[in-house]
């Protein structure tokens, strides 16, 4: 538990404490595990892709417009999250707050659209228990949605800590780690957009 504090001016704030460095590496490894988790979900989804039983096919229900809006919201939030970290490294707490809150708002918008989408599908007769395909769909997209929800809650908690304690090596490492998480969710969404929605609309055509 060595806590050698490095105060080289070029070292970003979040890397300045030993704990911060260990936590960041640990989190990268955790993201490795998350990749394994989502890969398994993708494999499952692709295996079950044509198993719609008596239920509707994705081609009948998927709508490009809503998904494009979701994608736009989440991709933008990743961009604003990047700016927030940039502001943090400049020690600009207000900038960090402004951009992080925009990020969270975009994330909340994404979630709202996703919930709306789910509700629509359920009304049109496609729920978790409709068929293997829809089980796969709701679980992979739902797992991502759950991650986004947790991300929003977690970032709010961290922002409260920054507000109370200021930008220290400890709090900034937390902010940085949560931003890694946020970018990761964005990457996963790009795969979902491709593997779930685009293939669902194209391959199921007919």
């Amino acid at each position: 538990m060595a806590h050698a504090e490095v105060h080289d001016h070029n070292t970003p704030l979040e890397y300045q404490s030993e704990t911060g460095r260990l936590n960041i590496l640990g989190f990268w490894i955790f993201l490795g595990a998350e990749i394994a988790l989502f890969s398994t979900l993708f494999a499952t989804y692709l295996v079950l892709m044509y198993r719609t039983a008596d239920g509707p096919t994705p081609h009948e229900l998927f709508e490009l417009k809503g998904v494009l809006i979701e994608t736009f919201l989440l991709l933008t939030s990743s961009f604003t999250c990047g700016i927030a970290i940039h502001e943090m490294r400049k020690r600009n707490r207000t900038g960090l707050f402004v951009w992080m809150i925009i990020t969270l708002a975009l994330g909340a918008g994404f979630l709202g659209y996703e919930i709306y989408e789910f509700v629509t599908y359920v009304h049109e007769g496609a729920a978790l228990g409709t068929s293997a395909f829809w089980s796969g769909f709701f679980v992979i997209v739902g797992t991502h949605g759950l991650h986004v929800t947790m991300g929003i809650a977690w970032i709010i908690l961290i922002l409260i800590q920054v507000a109370r304690r200021g930008l220290t090596p400890q709090t900034s490492a937390k902010v940085f780690i949560s931003s890694l998480y946020w970018h990761f969710l964005d990457v996963v969404w790009i795969f979902i957009f491709t593997a779930v929605y685009l293939t669902g609309m194209v391959l199921h055509n007919g």
């Binding site: 978790l128 409709t130 089980s135």
Partner: peptide, 25 residues
Amino acid sequence: TVALALMTFDRLFGAHFFTLQGAGM
């Protein structure tokens, strides 16, 4: 983690990942 979760969904929430009904596998 995923495999157990999927079977849990099958058993508790009526999903059809591995079941006989609903074209599970």
